[in-house]
Design a protein around this nucleic acid. Structure first.
Lengths: 135, 135
DNA sequence: CAGGATCCTTACGGATACTG
DNA sequence: CAGTATCCGTAAGGATCCTG
């Protein structure tokens, strides 16, 4: 089974990270793990993202088959984004990232964290991924 | 317990990704999961990395407490890098990333993958993380 | 409402040359 | 051997203005 992918000669870890690089995609993923959302909702949910980056990230995630885009032929326009089944399958990955991140944050010096992640302004509510363990 | 980190107002997933962003760090992590390595060994193991990026990545990983650096006072110089316990704790994360990456690669169009990840030159042996499940 | 199109700045990262 | 220092091109990403 490992042979099937060996010809690609590429690190699967790096692939996964590549698909999620730029914090915006992670935050978009987090939003969409809560269910389908409209463009405007994502814009508000992913605090700090520019229109350009949101659009661009969503396009890339569509190209990567992680996100589905549904257009409702209405006026004014109504576009809904949701996770594909592939996108949904990222849940365990997000969970692993979150668990490790929580432990890291707890064990790190607050001042270091603040500098490392440019946290000057509080209130940006970088929420956590939704908890599905009880569902 | 969630309250302990709530004041940081930051997404743990994004934190974890941030620490691993740039493919080089992932590949360095992969190398060091195999055990301590010297600078030159890493340079060879992480195929394609420039000296600048290797040094820079290692410095950041040290600052993030992921990597330990040990200098042997010899001539010629002998420096050994290894994962800290914090770095070692990334193993489950790497595993999750790898498992998802393998599935993604298997289910993706080879041509798309080649374009998406700029795979023109084969033989760069982006190996996978070491298997510890049988240890 | 959901974007497209531009401009512009910065910082990432490669190549090269040098050092204790 | 294990780096440091410098130059430099590219491209990521923010800000702004416009549109179906």
């Amino acid at each position: 089974m490992a042979e099937d992918i060996s010809r690609f000669d590429i690190c699967p870890c790096a692939v996964t990270i590549s698909l999620l690089d730029s914090k915006w995609k992670i935050l978009i993923l987090r939003e969409l793990l809560q269910g389908p959302k409209r463009y405007g909702e994502l814009k508000k949910g992913v605090v700090g993202v520019s229109q350009k980056m949101l659009t661009q990230s969503l396009k890339e995630m569509q190209a990567d088959q992680l996100v589905d885009r549904k257009v409702y032929p209405e006026v004014p326009p109504h576009v809904e984004y949701s996770l594909s089944s592939l996108g949904q399958s990222l849940y365990p990955v997000a969970e692993a990232l979150e668990n490790w991140g929580i432990a890291f944050i707890k064990n790190s010096d607050p001042d270091y964290l603040a500098k490392r992640f440019n946290i000057h302004e509080p209130g940006k509510h970088w929420l956590r991924i939704p908890d599905r363990s009880k569902e």
